[in-house]
């Protein structure tokens, strides 16, 4: 059994986001990047399945910058092999639709039984990755999955809908899964483990496939106008607590 986990870097969303001068992309000058939280869940699920079944796990990324470090973290988390698809330094902002054919090509080479990636990335404006890969590879795919178990030629998944309702789905392998939550929360990796991997060479491959066409050239980004939003309470925590208490009293809520 061979599992491929696809990992992407995302801007750290607790930091301030600004739009660059031509309004086409976020200003990436100072922005921190982190593993997409849903890909983090996919990585954890892949390692959990490896521990449960002895499957081999390969982690894949297609990043301009930070891809090597990302994949070294994956090694520290317990994946067996990694592969970095080179996209060129100038391609920092590729959408999932642009990268999908690159992953398709790599996956056709690896021929895994199961592909796990995050259900979405918060900039997947032209489509989420897992369903696109399902269509490109013509493999069955299921998104918004929490819980994956492997059987003989099948995976049993739980797909989540609104209101806490979910369905159990049995899927023939090979299949693509857009993961929402792993069976257990992602584990912590010790810094020492990462340092041990500093010298490891991350294998790279140059893609033969072209980027997928998306509508990035037709998109303008903006910081939303929140002027109609919250009335802001100012002061330190004491002052804010006092104001909240007043508001609740005024409205008869306490």
């Amino acid at each position: 059994m061979h599992i491929a986990a696809i990992l992407r870097l995302n801007p750290v969303l607790t930091e301030e986001l600004e739009v660059d001068e031509d309004g086409r992309d976020i200003d990436r000058e100072w922005i921190g990047l982190e593993l997409n939280p849903f890909d983090d869940q996919a990585l954890e699920q892949a390692v959990l399945l490896k521990e449960a079944t002895g499957a081999k796990v390969t982690a894949l990324a297609a990043e301009a910058e930070g891809g090597e470090r990302l994949l070294k973290t994956a090694l520290a988390r317990g994946v067996d092999e990694v592969l970095l698809i080179e996209v060129g330094e100038e391609n920092v902002q590729l959408s999932s639709r642009a990268r999908a054919p690159l992953f398709q090509e790599a996956l056709e080479g690896l021929a895994p039984d199961l592909v796990l990636t995050g259900v979405l990335s918060t900039d997947d404006i032209y489509g989420e990755l897992a369903p696109q890969l399902g269509a490109l590879l013509d493999w069955p795919q299921v998104s918004a999955v929490s819980n994956v178990a492997l059987g003989d030629g099948v995976a049993t998944l739980q797909q989540e809908y609104s209101g806490g309702i979910s369905a159990r789905i049995e899927v023939q392998l090979p299949a693509v899964v857009g993961l929402q939550a792993a069976t257990q929360p992602p584990r912590y990796v010790a810094g020492s483990k990462l340092r041990d991997l500093l010298k490891v060479e991350v294998p790279t491959v140059e893609p033969g496939a072209d980027f997928g066409a998306d509508l990035a050239d037709a998109t303008e980004l903006e910081v939303p106008d929140t002027s109609g939003g919250a009335e802001m309470l100012t002061g330190d925590a004491e002052a804010v607590a006092a104001r909240i208490h007043e508001i609740l009293v005024e409205r008869g809520l306490v």
Binding site: Y126, G127, P131, Q132, A135, L136, Q141, S143, A144, L215
Partner: peptide, 19 residues
């Protein structure tokens, strides 16, 4: 959940762009 499955998948299958 269904829309995330379907929209990107059908976009690729039918060669359409999606937002």
């Amino acid at each position: 959940a269904a829309g995330v499955d379907l929209a990107p998948n059908v976009a690729i299958r039918t060669g359409r762009q999606m937002v």
